[in-house]
Amino acid sequence: MFSPEFASPVLLSTCRRPVDESLAGFIDSVFDGRPLWANRGPVPHMPAMNLREQGDNLLLECELPGVAPEDVDLQATGDEIRLTVKRKDRATSEKPSQKWLRRERACGQFSRSIKLPYELDAENVQASLQDGVLRASMPKAPHSRPHRVKLLGRETRS
């Protein structure tokens, strides 16, 4: 009934390819091949984020065009960071004399939290929003930083 070839990974991957291609074609047809800001993140309508380590600091970058500083809420608690953003002034309606020819930019609210492999020094997190890019420098908690272990040397013989 259930032949071994059917279950072989090679055959499964051949089956998957047309499905993937038709899905890609479907996505292209829906979005018209246009670059969507939303598509740069892992989930639609969620801005993309970059996280880098620099020494004992963790640097976060997030593109938030059109967002005012008061609409950004960044919280660091222990080993978790939470970013909540409201984008309020993007027009969504049209008057009878107006017509939207293109609507590609994301709008609305989103919230996202990221679990980190270590704890942060939440008191000393610094963040700025400039030219539509959020940049935050988050130092690791002292107990999460690497600690250099001194090796005990052998006693020198006289």
């Binding site: 049209e94 020819l101 293109r102 930019r105 890019v133």
Partner: peptide
């Protein structure tokens, strides 16, 4: 990404360039 709005007296184009 762009939004384009047409009004009776002109066009408005918004672009996200963070």
């Amino acid at each position: 990404a762009a939004d384009i709005l047409e009004e009776h007296d002109g066009l408005s184009v918004w672009l996200d360039v963070p």
